[in-house]
Amino acid sequence: MTNDKIALQLQPKEYKSAVKPVWCPGCGDFGVLGALTKALAGLKIQPEDAAVISGIGCSSRMPTYLSTYGFHGVHGRALAVATGLKVARPDLTVIATGGDGDGFSIGGNHFLHTCRRNPDLTYIVMDNQVYGMTKGQASPTTEPNWERAKLTPSGTGINPFQPLAIALASGANFIARCSSSDSNGTARVLMEAIRHPGFSMVQVLSPCVTFRPEQREWKRSLIPAPEDMQRTPDPAEAARLLMTDEGVYTGILYVGDRPVYQPKLKSEIDNIATLDEEFRL
């Protein structure tokens, strides 16, 4: 379907749909939306050749706001939908988007196995350490002593999930952390993530101004990782960084070259009646 098509240079704006986001003003997800449109424009991917897949949550509304193909499914299953689509349609650029609850709690198993399987997908997790759409419960990445959730009024008492360390251990092929307030920097990372073969995991720290207004401070606390620590191909080095940086380093933190999961879809037989033979007595 994409043969003979001339890649037009479109403006980032042209990757936005006519639907206006329901996100709260000030939400970090606006920055990610902007960054994603810039990355798609930068890569000259035609809107009809990209599909953005999501589950449930504030950030999972992303596909509706884009002019690409989109799929807004059920809670936690974005990566499964994205994997099925990419395996069946390797010609498409497939991007999954979602939040920390969707990806690491209800969808945790798919996260592990998609890292492990390594299909050529880009996964953008807008991490705000809270469930926004259900009114501010603690998520897997919430700190244990956050006491403002009515569901866990004394804090969760549970250590937060370390998405990037787990992605690395599970086999993700490209790992990055961004800040939504740095929309241009995020765009640059996303462009590289989309271009990199295999499963690219991009955590974007994206403040929830409604339930975690203190996260507006992230734009000051997040700092680019030292140049010499970025883009390491060595998982051990990346692991040390991810386990010791307390989540404040942004940038491309691991670039691997594991083989990509993409079965060949090429018919070996001309006539389907050939299949009859194995049943014939």
Binding site: I53, A80, T83, G84, L85, L265
Partner: peptide, 21 residues
Amino acid sequence: VLVQAEDELASVNQIIGASFG
């Protein structure tokens, strides 16, 4: 192609993804 999925939740969502495509 057949993909061995990580669980049935993945199976059904993968086929939805492929069919969407």
